[in-house]
């Protein structure tokens, strides 16, 4: 009888101890950061869009415009949002680049977009301005838009909307599907 009681007692202690162990999953790291440098933001931001316009005839000067919001969405306001000023009746080759300037060194995301060309498309929509834009590059099936041709008409002022869509698995050559990565309305002057 005594032995049985002892065994019962011992097994009860064991069960209790085991039960407590299960309940003691390790606390996560301390909330107070131990390092003196901020955690690296592994996520890639698009902070900067750069468009370079080169006159195909080689007459007009090359034009470069930027949109810059180095700290990303929210926080500080964008630091640079240029007006696109192009010469009238001219054909420009435009090349588009995007960067992450929140990183040091600055990351060029253009290369990745080129690598994943079948998941990306740029769309250009001029409004109230004598301008026509066509994409001149391709991922093999659909156009991309990193390279484009901008043909200006007579002098006018309006806006040009530049959209970058991320369309993994759903790219169909239009701007409808997917999520918007970039959507900027550049003020556009044709002089």
């Amino acid at each position: 009888m005594k032995t049985i009681q002892k065994i019962t007692k011992a097994s009860l202690y064991l069960f209790l101890a085991a039960a407590l162990m299960v309940g003691c999953k390790k606390d996560d790291d301390s909330p107070k950061p131990s390092s003196s440098t901020p955690p690296a933001n592994e996520e890639e931001l698009i902070t900067t869009v750069k468009i370079t316009f080169v006159d195909t005839a080689g007459v007009e000067p090359t034009v470069t415009v930027f949109f810059r919001d180095p700290d990303g969405d929210g926080g500080n306001a964008p630091t640079q949002f240029d007006t696109i000023r192009l010469a009238a009746n001219t054909v420009y080759n435009a090349s588009l680049e995007v960067f992450d300037e929140s990183k040091n060194p600055v990351e060029n995301i253009t290369t990745e977009i080129a690598q994943e060309a079948d998941e990306h498309i740029f769309c250009f929509t001029p409004t109230n301005v004598n301008l026509s834009i066509i994409r001149t590059d391709s991922d093999g099936t659909y156009e991309i838009g990193l390279a484009s041709q901008w043909t200006t008409g007579i002098a006018s002022v309006g806006t040009t909307q530049v959209i970058l869509k991320h369309q993994p698995g759903v790219k169909d050559g239009t701007c409808a599907p997917g999520d918007t990565d970039v959507e900027l309305n550049f003020v556009t002057e044709i002089q």
Binding site: I46, D73, T180
Partner: peptide, 9 residues
């Protein structure tokens, strides 16, 4: 609205 690279929010 807040202006971001993805448009105004």
């Amino acid at each position: 609205p807040t202006l971001t690279i993805r448009g105004a929010f």
